[in-house]
Simulated assay, not measured.
Amino acid sequence: MDTPTQRAQTHYGGAGLMAKVQAALAAFGPEETVLTVSQLAMLDQFHTRGMLATGELAEAMELEAGMAVLDLGCGIGGPTRYLAANYGVHVTGVDLSPSFVDTARYLSQRCALGDSTTFLTGDATQPPVADGSIDRVFLQHVAMNIADRAALYRAIRRVLKPAGRFATYDIVAKDGAPHFPVPWATTPENSHLRTEAETRDALTAAGFTIDLWRDDTEVASQWFAKMVAGGPPAGPTLALVLGADFPAMMANLARSLREGRIGVLTAIASCR
């Protein structure tokens, strides 16, 4: 029987992704053209509110140049590159999908950020980094794919330094199940949402103290409404990553937020 991890790997398989991305980026110029983080934002920021949310979370995390940062469930590396480019930190991105990791490395090279970013294939519940080696951990729209939430938060606590901090920006369960498919799951079997209360309990049990706890559901809903009103964005988008189901996934996500079935949680926690 498939495990939740194996199902997540299948969902984010990314077959042929590198070739699709390379072809799409030709719109910005020849292969040697150096790209910016902003140019890639509609393609590589794999969460609601995109680069806006990453920027807000980074600001709240009080990053300092030289810090070691871990981006768990990094996808193709959008937040990883944003943090490295704007804060002078070295960021390690970890993702289950080898295709995503390969594409993330390629995009970092295209942005001249290869020296300040590292990408590894691995499980977020067992990140391949040393214990006590990380100053800050970012987790954006990842936890809903992880059934063993306790193992996830214990792993994050393990890799953080004694004064480390952890930020999560994720979808949470509210009143009812989301409409499927959504970006993180095509069927309920791949979706492992928890309520805000369950999330807080799991974080506390893992040894974290809560510094910030904010419901960003309404802000996310307003963002979706603005995106729809603005029409399709120019340039490469997440449709390259998610494939033909992308429009239905995004529509179901926005609808589920409007109907109060799910919410968006921003939280920052410190090691005790």
Score class of each variant (00 low, 15 high):
204 T>P: 01
235 G>R: 10
106 Y>E: 09
161 K>L: 13
266 T>S: 14
247 P>F: 01
62 E>F: 05
161 K>T: 14
247 P>L: 01
90 H>M: 12
64 E>I: 00
259 E>P: 09
91 V>I: 10
221 S>K: 12
4 P>H: 07
5 T>E: 15
240 L>W: 04
191 S>H: 12
137 V>H: 02
23 A>G: 14
228 V>D: 13
141 H>Y: 11
47 H>V: 05
64 E>G: 02
266 T>N: 11
178 P>V: 05
86 N>D: 02
253 L>D: 00
227 M>G: 03
173 A>W: 00
158 R>H: 12
76 I>R: 04
171 I>Q: 10
121 T>A: 13
122 G>Q: 08
244 A>K: 15
182 V>R: 07
219 V>N: 04
36 T>V: 07
108 S>H: 03
189 E>G: 03
222 Q>C: 06
45 Q>Y: 04
165 R>W: 01
127 P>F: 08
37 V>H: 07
164 G>K: 08
122 G>V: 09
267 A>H: 05
4 P>V: 04
56 E>S: 09
110 R>P: 05
38 S>M: 06
71 D>N: 12
29 G>D: 12
248 A>F: 00
60 A>V: 11
168 T>Y: 00
5 T>W: 02
154 R>A: 14
37 V>R: 10
264 V>K: 14
112 A>T: 01
123 D>T: 07
91 V>Y: 09
